[in-house]
Design a protein around this nucleic acid. Structure first.
Lengths: 302, 302
DNA sequence: CGGCGACATACCTTTCCTGTATGCCGGTTG
DNA sequence: CAACCGGCATACAGGAAAGGTATGTCGCCG
């Protein structure tokens, strides 16, 4: 509630604030209107949107309240002595640009006493390390987590088609798989992430199309422009679009493939530090609006 | 949320806290459990219920946060300059023990700058004063408010049967109208509150019973023990039970009569002070748990 | 005066909260 | 020591509140 007012005040408009809050404009307008009715005070002038004098007072006070609420949580955790210890987390390479930096930042900000040992690797290595008891938390897409671990969805997103700038379809906004018939699907070698690989291919083939796969021997997003010049394409989760180098185009996929889920998994009977890392990751996911779709299927702990 | 923790801490048990919060125990337990999971910290020991060390820290911090939120509202209203002016309220005599004192107290506490001019009277007089433009707000049960006024339910409650201590049924917990067949229903003279009078009699007669009404020439709750010795009975809204003198018994009515509603009504285009009084009354109603049943029917402004 | 951008309104869907019913555990008592 | 009882936890269902989608309306600007 108070967050909403602050967001509108900072963004300067209802629309911009709604986007920042990962919601749409109408419910935001409604919430502000209800609050104004409850207070009996107009907080904003409309058209153009601008704070009233009373609105300025409210925003200032609201900032203090929210900061106080944050501090309440922090002080409580400190009193409980749970902000100590270490958590060993392993994550797939494709989360190292967007998701993991945000999770690490949140951990440093809210739980500076917890030591986070991070290990970036491809799925196969992560799976082995977890099985050997070297990791407490895993982050990845379709990882083979040890049998009785728990897990929860962090992000659910669509696939996009990635082509080089010289590709004949590079100017299009969206493509369907039929448009790509006959072209080569570039993929990293299956052994790096077998379950993910199989999952993508299976859902592609479920459309009835056939696919010619060419396994790129040198995986890595940085040198995509080498392998993707004017022919061939890749399929990637949408969130990776922002991390691609220049000379690469992201095209919306018009076919309705099932969304690809990024999950966090953790061992049973975790230490407080481990659960804090898991909770922080999920909190970041909510804050960033990564969970527009419905939650997952099995072995959830909500 | 923070209110819940504070309530449990102060009440010393989940059950007692739930009652104080006008809710039941299971959802309260659930909310606290969820918060404890979110924090990763146990706030209470169970069996017996007692604050943990971290819980004490949280309660202290939460009190500050809630106080800050209150202050935010207050400061905003002061900046808007809406806590001035006057509101003229008229209310039925039966609300002068429980409801109105709480509303007045809330107004003094939160809006000391607003001058509240109060007028206690029977319905007929209130109706006339409102029609003559002498009142801005009305509080009563089935008042004849001016045509285009708005209104909202403040309280919805059952009727109880009131008998003297010497009555043959005085020891019973509940009675039905059939048990009272042949006895005299005591009522104040109809002219004091015609709509309320008719409403009660109509819903009584809708049960199929017949009623012998004796209009007590001297209305007033204080001298009930005079008119109710060992025979005869009255029907009153349940909330009045607490205000009756000694020597009087309140019996639950087993027949399912429609609940009787206490409403607040106000003129259109009210001044800020008037709307503040209305909002405060409704806030008190929510806080006190007067609205367990569903809201009313027509001419509502939610 | 017509088009556009931005907030308001209407309506529907979904989620979360609360109530009811019931289970379970610990403490107490005969 | 066993069985009862008081009090918190769990399961399930109904309903209010929050969010999404579609569309209206108002200023502003050309």
């Amino acid at each position: 509630m108070m967050r909403y007012v602050i967001a509108v005040a900072e963004a300067g408009s209802f629309e911009a604030a709604a986007e920042r809050l990962h919601m749409t404009q109408p419910p935001l307008s409604r919430q502000i209107r209800d609050l104004e009715r409850e207070l009996g005070v107009n907080l904003f002038h409309r058209r153009p949107t601008r704070l009233t004098e009373a609105g300025r007072v409210f925003v200032e006070a609201a900032r203090e309240v929210l900061a106080g609420a944050e501090q309440a949580v922090e002080r409580t955790r400190r009193a409980a002595g749970v902000d100590h210890g270490a958590a060993r987390v392993g994550y797939t390479v494709t989360t190292s640009f967007d998701e993991m930096p945000k999770v690490f930042a949140a951990m440093r900000a809210r739980h500076p006493g917890i030591r986070v040992e991070a290990r970036e690797a491809w799925d196969a290595e992560l799976t082995g390390a977890a099985a050997d008891g070297e990791l407490d938390v895993l982050l990845g897409r379709h990882l083979a987590v040890p049998a009785e671990w728990l897990s929860a969805v962090l992000r659910s997103e669509e696939f996009v088609v990635v082509v080089g700038a010289g590709h004949r379809l590079a100017g299009r906004a969206g493509v369907s798989l039929r448009d790509l018939r006959g072209e080569t699907l570039r993929f990293f070698p299956r052994r790096f992430a077998p379950l993910y690989y199989d999952r993508v291919l299976a859902s592609l083939r479920s459309t009835g199309e056939e696919f010619d796969v060419w396994e790129n021997p040198l995986p890595g997003l940085r040198n995509l422009n080498v392998s993707l010049s004017d022919s061939g394409y890749m399929l990637l989760p949408r969130s990776l679009c922002g991390q691609l180098p220049g000379g690469i185009a992201c095209l919306r996929l018009e076919d309705r493939l099932p969304p690809i889920e990024l999950r966090v998994s953790w061992q049973r009977n975790p230490s407080p530090a481990v659960m804090t890392l898991v909770r922080t990751a999920r909190r970041v996911a909510r804050r960033e609006g990564w969970l527009t779709a419905a939650p997952g299927t099995a072995r959830e702990q909500p």
